[in-house]
Amino acid sequence: MKPTVAVVGPGAIGTTVAAALHEVGHTPAIFGRTARAQLELRAGDDRVVVPGPVRTDPAQAGGAVDLVFLAVKSTQVEAAAPWLTALCGADTVVCVLQNGVEQETVVTAHLSGGRVVPSIVWFPAQAQPDGSVWLRGGARLTLPDTPESRVVREALRGSRCSVELAADFTSLAWRKLLQNAVAGLMVLAGRRAGMFARADVAELSLAYLRECLAVARAEGAALSDEVPHELLAGFQAYPPDMGTSILADREAGRPLEWDIRNGVVLRRGRAHGIPTPISDLVVPLLAAASDGPG
Score class of each variant (00 low, 15 high):
A221V: 10
S279M: 11
A155F: 01
P255S: 03
V17M: 12
V201C: 10
Q38A: 15
A12T: 12
W258Q: 11
L204I: 07
R140C: 04
A221I: 01
P293A: 07
K73Q: 15
L231W: 03
T34N: 10
V54I: 04
V106K: 09
K2P: 11
I246L: 10
A248Q: 13
L41I: 09
L281C: 09
L156G: 15
D130Q: 13
G11F: 13
G253E: 04
D145N: 15
T244C: 14
E23G: 10
F196H: 11
F169E: 01
A199L: 08
S171T: 14
S224I: 13
R261G: 01
C161P: 06
H22L: 10
P284R: 13
V54L: 05
E203N: 11
P53S: 05
V50Y: 01
R250S: 02
T27V: 15
S162C: 14
F69T: 01
L209E: 00
G63T: 13
A35M: 01
M242H: 04
G137K: 12
V152G: 03
V49N: 07
Y238G: 00
A90L: 03
V116K: 00
L188N: 09
A189C: 13
R157D: 14
L247Y: 13
E23H: 08
A271G: 08
V116R: 00
W174F: 01
D46F: 03
E203K: 14
L70H: 05
A6L: 07
A80Y: 01
T85K: 14
G292Y: 10
A139P: 04
G253Y: 04
S132H: 07
R157E: 15
L97A: 11
Q126K: 11
V215T: 03
D57T: 13
V107G: 10
A166E: 10
L231M: 08
L97E: 05
A80E: 01
G158M: 08
L70P: 03
L97Y: 09
Q98S: 11
R250D: 12
R160P: 02
L232R: 00
G52V: 12
K73V: 08
T108P: 03
L185W: 06
V133P: 06
A237L: 12
A199H: 15
V133A: 14
L39Q: 02
A155K: 00
D66P: 04
P284M: 14
V68P: 01
C88K: 08
L70T: 02
E251S: 06
S132Q: 04
R140M: 15
V182S: 00
D168N: 00
R198C: 13
P275G: 06
P124H: 15
V7E: 00
I246Q: 07
I246P: 02
A43F: 08
P144Y: 05
P293E: 12
V116Q: 00
T244R: 12
A214R: 13
M1R: 10
A64D: 07
E230Q: 12
H26N: 15
V106H: 09
Q60A: 15
T105N: 02
G137L: 03
G32E: 05
